[in-house]
Design a binder for these strands. Sequence first.
DNA 1: CTGCCTCCC
DNA 2: GGGAGGCAG
Length: 268
Amino acid sequence: MVLRNRHLYSLIAILILLGVYGYEYFLTELDSAELVKEEARVKTETNTFFLPTSTTGQIIHHKGYSLSYSEPHEQAEWVAYELKKSHLATTNFKRPYFEIDHAVKTGAASWRNYKNSGYDRGHLVPAGDKNYSQQAHDETFLTSNISPQRHAFNAGIWNALEQKVRYWASKYDGVFVVTGGVLTSGLTTIGTEKVAVPDAFYKVVFDADHNKMIAFLMPHKNSAEPLYNFVVSVDSVEVITGIDFFPELEDDLENQLEATTDYSGWSF
DNA sequence: CTGCCTCCC
DNA sequence: GGGAGGCAG
């Protein structure tokens, strides 16, 4: 009788242990799934999805975009952000003043470098892409987000390209965008801090939902040519900038997307 | 020198 | 999408 009870108690103990461990295992599985989601959420919020590599080692994350700052050129070598369809808005926020980006540890350029220089303070992340909130809009007026641009270029073909990207964001339900000037050595500079004036600007657009990519390389002058005349392969932009775009993509896919100059999948 | 305002294309 | 001049602190 005593022996039988012992067996019974052992059995109960084993069942309890199984139950406890099983429940903990369940919780652990739940935790790891939640953790993945949490990481994805944080990455999305800090724009660490699909960031290019930095040749300068100074990547800065703002709420609405990230950038890699080049101290020698006193501007970003790239800015990167996701332009969601839900971001598109026609709100007209009051235009703020340009502010020095204090997140840049080496000191971002002052906007006064541009004063009387003959060049526009050209947005890299367009304010027009951030009209969904006052904060996101104002954040584009940091000096880490501007580059000296000829007014005719900025207001001309470059503006046309920015509008085309917004059209694509709407048509294809969101795109990832990377933009910058081609920062080489020996460029003309403006202001006391010697902000470099790029000879060309590039823009890379990735439609992750439909797996297609397109890149533009534009000489720093206005043009009446159609936008698709400036399409180049992403690979060629990587060669002249030293930047690796979308390194997180699976290699075969990345190689395929970045080698092409075929823009037939993009509606102009 | 920097921040801000007003008027301008 | 931007610029210039001017004024106060």
